[in-house]
Amino acid sequence: MSSRKKVLLKVIILGDSGVGKTSLMNQYVNKKFSASYKATIGADFLTKEVLVDDRLVTMQIWDTAGQERFQSLGVAFYRGADCCVLVYDVNNQKSFETLDSWRDEFLIQASPRDADSFPFVVIGNKIDVDDGKRQVHQKRAMAFCQGKGNLPYFETSAKEAINVEQAFEVIARHALAQEEAEEYTGDFGSSTIVDIGADSENDGCGC
């Protein structure tokens, strides 16, 4: 097994509508922020190449495309994720309280081989908003993360680009570790995926 083969990591971002999932992703990948709220628009996923301990990996970041709004994410969205990012808005109590059910939903749908060791990263976003509006205290969030098996926790502002880079660095590291662990217990063996994007020149019909 070549250890230098191209590594593709699937990262999915979960959390209630409006907590800033797309903004985080956009800030990280495109270094941009748009103040006006717009539900997730555009590409299926964003990709970014990053170096993790001298290894070049491609991170594929998927967000919910608005399908979380009415709890309508299909199982295919969750499948094959190497890391799951749980995002809440520090100024929105309810978005914090639903983190647990997002985590449960992920574990049910993605059914990772080892649920206890699967990497989650928790992000409290929108820390740029006035202190007076903050509803979830850092201590409380950290207690939650500790209770779930010491999940890494970051407080970010996608708007001000605070801590976003750092959070995704940890996400990439955990995703890579997960991908490598899966590689050795590999699900699928001998089959080769048919690349439907590449028409073969070979005309197999020898008639």
Partner: peptide, 28 residues
């Protein structure tokens, strides 16, 4: 893998959703 029909359906629905022009609601 996992079934052509069900996977294609989810890919197309997600493709609709990511445009920002489609709203999805199951159990309705």
């Amino acid at each position: 893998r996992y079934g052509s029909g069900s996977e294609l359906v989810q890919v197309f629905c997600r493709a609709a959703a990511v445009t920002g022009n489609a709203i999805y609601m199951l159990e309705n």
